[in-house]
């Protein structure tokens, strides 16, 4: 089948989701883990009796126990409590920056692809430069210059995540622009806004959302990396990257302090990647038609 370049038209979102997950069973695992993490983060107080900020000088660097499932840190704070409250920070910053990048990036891509010409050339040149420059370094410099506040971190991560969304939106827009049904729209006298919003955007939205789930993983990773370097949300607010950073300072005698948040990050990113990968397979028409 050469003509079915567009994803087939789903009857409803739910139906589509179920079909997606039947194609790729590992995405179920990703979704379940992710939902679990979100539930635990949102209802964090229900999952621990400890205050993540409460220090206890009598229990510094104590190992895992019944009282403290994953032990305590150098201030005697409960690692599990810090972990699940830290998930809030990771998820909030990750989601906020990804949503911003998604909105800005795909708008740029859509408009650049549709209007082409000089606007396209300039925008894509900017995107290419942004994409090629090491994103972590760029994020580092922005956060260091503006100060390590939540909005600044969100801004820095969002900025470095815009180019992939611009690209993922632009390529199919250009392809669709040449498509005969879009030419038909033009010859029927539809406005640009109508063509873009009614006839192009819905056909590329799925790809953008898939990209979003993959870049959410990246945003969480970047936030943790910044915190690990020491440019994250300021202590004592728990963040996963910050926990690994302080755990790393005690790695010779209290390895779990670094290992537990490391695994937490790994699991969440892995879950997001599983989910995004499964979704991508389901959305990718080339793979779907063979399956």
């Amino acid at each position: 089948m050469t003509h079915a370049v567009l994803p087939g038209a789903p009857r409803g979102a739910l139906h589509a989701m179920i079909r997606v997950f039947n194609v790729n069973k590992t995405s179920w695992a990703g979704l379940v883990i992710l939902l679990a993490v979100i539930v635990i983060a949102v209802f964090a107080p229900l999952f621990t009796a400890h205050d993540p900020l409460a220090q206890d000088v009598t229990r510094q660097l104590s190992g895992p126990s019944m009282e403290h499932l994953f032990g305590t840190d150098e201030y005697g704070r409960d690692t599990w409590a810090r972990l699940i409250y830290g998930a809030r920070v990771s998820l909030a910053i990750g989601i906020a920056s990804t949503v911003i990048a998604m909105l800005v990036g795909s708008s740029i891509g859509l408009l650049a692809g549709w209007y082409g010409g000089r606007f396209d050339a300039v925008m894509m040149q900017v995107m290419d430069v942004l994409l090629a420059f090491p994103s972590l370094i760029l994020g580092l410099v922005i956060v260091a210059m503006l100060g390590a506040s939540t909005p600044n971190i969100v801004f820095a991560i969002a900025l470095t995540s815009i180019p992939p969304f611009a690209r993922i939106a632009r390529a199919p827009t250009i392809a669709l622009k040449e498509r005969e049904y879009v030419e038909a729209c033009r010859s029927l006298g539809y406005s640009d806004a109508r063509i873009l919003l009614v006839h192009i955007l819905p056909n590329i939205a799925a790809e953008i959302v898939v990209m979003g789930s993959l870049w959410l993983a990246n945003a969480i990773r970047t936030e943790a990396s910044l915190a690990f370097i020491g440019l994250g949300i300021k202590p004592p607010t728990p963040t996963w990257g910050g926990m690994i950073r302080s755990g790393f300072e005690n790695i010779l005698d209290s390895a779990w302090l670094a290992v537990v948040p490391s695994l937490a990050i790994l699991i969440v990113i892995f879950a997001l990647n599983l989910l995004g990968d499964g979704l991508r397979d389901a959305v990718d028409p080339k793979l779907k038609n063979e399956a």
């Binding site: 990396s225 690994i244 790695i251 390895a255 670094a258 290992v259 990113i269 892995f270 990647n273 990968d277």
Partner: peptide, 18 residues
């Protein structure tokens, strides 16, 4: 490979070091 791709660079470093 998906798992490998999920590693933040410092996590893989910390685990290898450990």
């Amino acid at each position: 490979s998906l798992l490998g791709l999920s590693f933040p660079a410092f996590v893989s470093a910390v685990i290898l070091l450990l």
